[in-house]
């Protein structure tokens, strides 16, 4: 089914557009809005955003490809973004990554989705919370001072819900 903004999203978009003198400025916010519901940015989302902002599809696609927060492939039910940058690595990030790869059967891959489609794991760069490492974002929220035990418990909980 093609992606369409809902009534309430359209109201949000009207408010967003009133913040800028140029429609194009709303590109990133609209992509975030779409991804929040859709999980990822496919051609249909790009088309909907382009139409709403009177931009070319190629402009929107080009923007999407530049920013790492936009998923260009479908994702699992939960997305775990692990910070891989130095400050987190110094305090134990690698053990989290090993655990995730093993639990989800990803082999050596840094990023991927488990077979059941429960979790997508990605490794991202510094999240600006370096003193609370290791850090991961799970479904949009920061989780700090992570340990394998804490992460396992969080995932069990998510899997059960």
């Amino acid at each position: 089914m093609a992606f369409e903004f809902t009534e309430s999203e359209n109201q949000q978009i009207d408010r967003l557009l009133s913040c800028y003198p140029s429609k194009m400025s709303a590109t990133l916010p609209l992509l975030h809005l779409a991804q929040k519901r859709n999980g990822w940015i496919g051609p249909d989302v790009i088309e909907a955003v382009a139409r709403r902002l009177e931009l070319t599809k190629i402009h929107v696609a080009d923007v999407v490809s530049f920013y790492s927060m936009y998923h260009r492939k479908p994702v699992g039910r939960h997305v775990i973004s692990v910070c891989r940058t130095l400050c987190c690595q110094l305090v134990g990030q690698e053990s989290l990554s090993d655990y995730l790869r093993e639990r989800l059967g990803l082999g050596e891959a840094m990023n991927g989705t488990d077979e059941k489609g429960h979790f997508t794991v990605e490794h991202v760069e510094c999240l600006g919370a370096c003193g609370m490492g290791p850090v991961a974002i799970i479904d949009g929220e920061y989780h700090e001072h992570l340990t394998v035990d804490k992460l396992a418990a969080l995932m069990d909980q998510l899997e059960a819900s």
């Binding site: 913040c19 709303a26 990133l28 975030h32 923007v63 920013y67 790492s68 927060m69 936009y70 510094c126």
Partner: peptide, 27 residues
């Protein structure tokens, strides 16, 4: 005063990249 979200790109902290990003372009 308005808030504007980035899209996950360190380079957008560079001020002119930030302005491009705020205009809805690649950073």
């Amino acid at each position: 005063l308005y808030l504007h979200p980035g899209g996950g790109a360190y380079i957008c902290g560079e001020e002119t990249a930030l302005l491009n990003s705020l205009e809805g372009r690649r950073g």
